[in-house]
Amino acid sequence: MALLDNEKCVLPLSSIAELLSTKARTLKMYEEKGLLPRRQNQTKKLYSINDVRFIAFVHYLASVKKINANGIKYILEMLHTNMDEKNRNEFLDIVEGKLEKISTNDVEDIDNFK
Rank of each mutant, 00 (worst) to 15 (best):
P12Y: 08
F91D: 06
I16W: 04
N82L: 09
R53M: 09
V107M: 12
L4Q: 12
E31I: 01
V64F: 08
L13M: 09
V64H: 09
R39D: 00
L99G: 12
E85R: 11
L79P: 07
V64Y: 13
K86Y: 08
D109R: 15
I55Q: 04
Y74R: 14
A62D: 10
L92I: 15
N41L: 07
A62E: 03
V107L: 15
D84G: 10
E85L: 13
R38E: 06
L76H: 11
D93S: 15
P12R: 10
F54R: 10
Y47A: 01
F91Q: 09
F57Y: 13
R39K: 10
V64G: 03
K44W: 00
V10L: 09
P12I: 02
E31R: 10
R39E: 01
V95R: 04
S48M: 06
D51R: 05
R38Y: 00
S103Q: 14
V58T: 13
K101P: 00
K86M: 00
C9D: 09
T26M: 13
N82V: 06
L27I: 04
E7F: 05
I75L: 08
K33S: 06
P37H: 05
R53A: 11
E32F: 07
A2P: 00
N112V: 07
I49P: 01
P12E: 09
E31A: 12
K73C: 01
N112I: 03
D106P: 00
P37F: 03
R53C: 06
G34S: 08
K101C: 12
L13H: 09
L20P: 01
I110K: 13
K45P: 01
L27F: 03
E85C: 05
Y30T: 08
N89H: 04
E18F: 07
M29T: 14
L11H: 11
I94V: 13
D109S: 13
R88N: 11
E7Q: 14
F57H: 09
E7C: 00
T22I: 03
A56I: 05
R25S: 14
I55D: 01
Y74D: 14
L79S: 10
S14G: 13
H80Y: 03
D93T: 12
Y74N: 15
A69Y: 13
E77D: 13
D5W: 05
N6L: 11
A24H: 02
L79C: 15
A17T: 05
R38S: 02
V64P: 00
